[in-house]
Design a protein around this nucleic acid. Sequence first.
DNA 1: CAAACGTGGTC
DNA 2: TGACCAAGTTT
Length: 376
Amino acid sequence: MTAKDHMARAEHLPNAERFARALLEWYDTHRRDLPWRGTRDPYAIWVSEIMLQQTQVARVAEYFARWMARFPTVQALAEASLDDVLKLWEGLGYYSRARNLHKAAKVIVEERQGRFPRTAAEWQKLPGVGPYTAAAIASIAFGEPVAALDGNLKRVLARVCLVETPINTPEGTRLLHDIAQALVPSQRAGDWNQALMDVGAEICTPRSPRCLLCPVQTHCAAAAHQRQHDLPRRRARGKRPHYLVTAALIWNEAGQLLIAQRPHDKMLGGLWEFPGGKCEAGETLDACLRREIREELGIEIEVGEHLTTVEHAYTHFSITLHAFHCRYVGGEPQALGVADWRWVFPDELDAFAWPSTDAKIIATLRAAQLTAESED
DNA sequence: CAAACGTGGTC
DNA sequence: TGACCAAGTTT
């Protein structure tokens, strides 16, 4: 389907000039005061946009200041180690964002002499920068009139234009992109994008939209037809599987723990963990753990006392993770199914970047150690 | 293109 | 409690 066909189906396209005027007027007095606003530094805007992918503003705010203090320039980031980068990203999720941000910083410094792209098309060539992020940076930092179609714009414009197509489909995305691009003004495109994001975050929310406060309510077809509660439509996603998983706290005679780094091209890539893995059908936790450790590290262990159980939901599946104290029996560890491994004392654990499940195991371990000490 | 990719908060 | 959601990108 062509862009023109899409537009023909958007019967409720508002007048672009009046829509933009109402939106920007509201933005001038109601804009949120966010840490990455008020700068035109492409690096700061880029970092914020990568952090904001699928992540709420309040959460990013916790990480952004710390990041900018540690890596204030693209040169500082390019010179950093991936381990340091992941440690600062720890807990934010979607770690390929951090790996790609680091990779792209090296490209900018080493191949572009430290010069940032100026257009969305150029930005999108960098790893981790897709259509949304490229448009956001180009419009905010360089004033390019391109629509930055994020979840907020999709929701707001689906309501304003009464879009019935599910917004989480390629077709819905194409349609909404065409609508957004038809509406974005040639001046102040960055403010226009951010204004729509603010409206989406604070007024045109997924449930209970506050239409009475909305600056574009008079332009909104959904509000006119009382459809704001059943738009936008989404295609339901399937049910996610649940897995039983084990993790081993393998102690050697020196009182050190064996930790492993996850493969860089896999989920949670580059983060460290207590090794283990998914239980197979009919397998006991004990057998699962010994098998996984043999497969990933080529060593033999003895499974001991149960430490804790962690329930966790990822995007596409959930797990029940059983962590056990284990005794190192023999064999020289090898990086068979892991990127790296290390023997470390418990007080050295904080230097590594952990997935949230393993962070919970460490917290339990610390609590148990404190209890043991107070009993001495 | 569908599926993979994190986490914490909300209803 | 479980399903949904949040400034998406990559393969």
